[in-house]
Design a protein around this nucleic acid. Sequence first.
RNA 1: GUGGAUGUAGCUCAACGGCAGAGCGCCUGAUUGUGGUUCAGGUGGUUGAGGGUUCAAGUCCCUUCAUCCACCCCA
Length: 442
Amino acid sequence: MSKTINARSPKGFRDFLPETMMRRNYVMETITDVFHRFGFEPLGTPILELRETLLGKYGEDAEKLIFSAQHGRSSKDPLAMRYDLTVPLARVVAQHESELSFPFKRYHIAPVFRGERPQRGRYREFYQCDADIVGVAGIAADAEIVTMTQRILERLNFPQFTIKINHRKLLTAIGEFSGLPDAQLPDLYRSVDKFDKIGADGVRQELIERQIQPEAVSRMMELLQAYEPGSGNLDFIAEALGEGDNGLDDLRGLANVLSDAGLPATCYDFDFTMARGLGYYTGPIFETVISQPNLGSITGGGRYDELVGMFRKQSLPTTGISFGIERIINLMDELDLYPAHLGGTLVQALVTVFSRETSTASMKVANQLRDAGINTELYFEPRKLGRQFSYADKKGIPIVAIAGPDEIEAGLVKLRRLSDGEERRSPMSDLASAVADMLGAH
RNA sequence: GUGGAUGUAGCUCAACGGCAGAGCGCCUGAUUGUGGUUCAGGUGGUUGAGGGUUCAAGUCCCUUCAUCCACCCCA
């Protein structure tokens, strides 16, 4: 016997066993269904991209996080594993422009790779779930993104969530209003974005530590904390900032469309402390948080009108959303938001095998159920019935079908529902509907 | 990249420097046509790896690997 290989996965990479995988699929299928409902269509791109495609925009910081993927013999065309789905989208739009019709509405659910040190909820391979609209400059597109976000979270049964809305230009305007030099704007975004985490005092302290003038900090904090639900918020800040290219028109327009669309006022909010990191955003930005209890953010997105310009002389206006699907799945596990029919198995019926002599009859029963659309497992060898029941019970299969000598003789199949022990005898001709009935009445 | 914690049976964890254990799981039987509950028996280990101290190391020391947590970063 040769020495065995240690069974382990690379750091930050995971296996998903069937029970987990079925929950993941449910979440992705539910989201996909709503994407379709809004007219978004799927896009697929390679896991590998040319290294230059990925590095163009983000430079050194990205370099450390990117997995290279080199073919053993080739030194041409350095390759790397994609670390998001947005850059590939921008590339596809530029590369296949003539084959697409605009507005181009696509969604993409697929794994991406980052060489980060793994931590809770952070892996080196994880799924991203994006929906974007390319080719529409107006806020109608942004509004559709927000509306769809609300529909999706509703469909997933989240009892409470808030879609925070802000505007990149407004953040800049607030910084300038406070007398902040342009060079310090990124510091501003970074600190302000931690508002939920470290509070107003924490942000103030961090801004001061970042060498920002105390006066500027005070003026800014006053504006940022101006908080009233609804559009009163917008009025207050408009008065302070005056007119200008500060994004307030966009936000007002968004507020109107969302209101007209009938979105519950409790599910979105204009929040000037939300910053979405550094990024490529140029217009309205969105982030959904679960705040009761405070469980952090589950979506992030916004308008990024310049990104396609990475690959094309003239850019195309783009807005979109990314669902933090790993985090959503975590929260759904914790909050137990899955529908009851998602059990430990998708098998609906187990057909037992009594003996060698009756195994053909059992197989016919199983195939009849399968043909009728019932997920059916046929036990593989004749063993004690108790063993076969025990297997069904352990796996969570709701119905056990028995075709023993007595039943075969009478042209019947005995059905037993494990949850309550209910038993019926059904003629072969009526089998599928009897099983469906027992499943339904469950 | 920085700091902290933890590695013992398939899983969750015990064991003062002195015979490596428990619960759960798994297997067999009680029960040869019926699961869960119960009872009886059984299977289970290079104590992450390597070195050192000691009469004696799961335990103490050093190295290393892995995992988790908090930072940094988050496109």
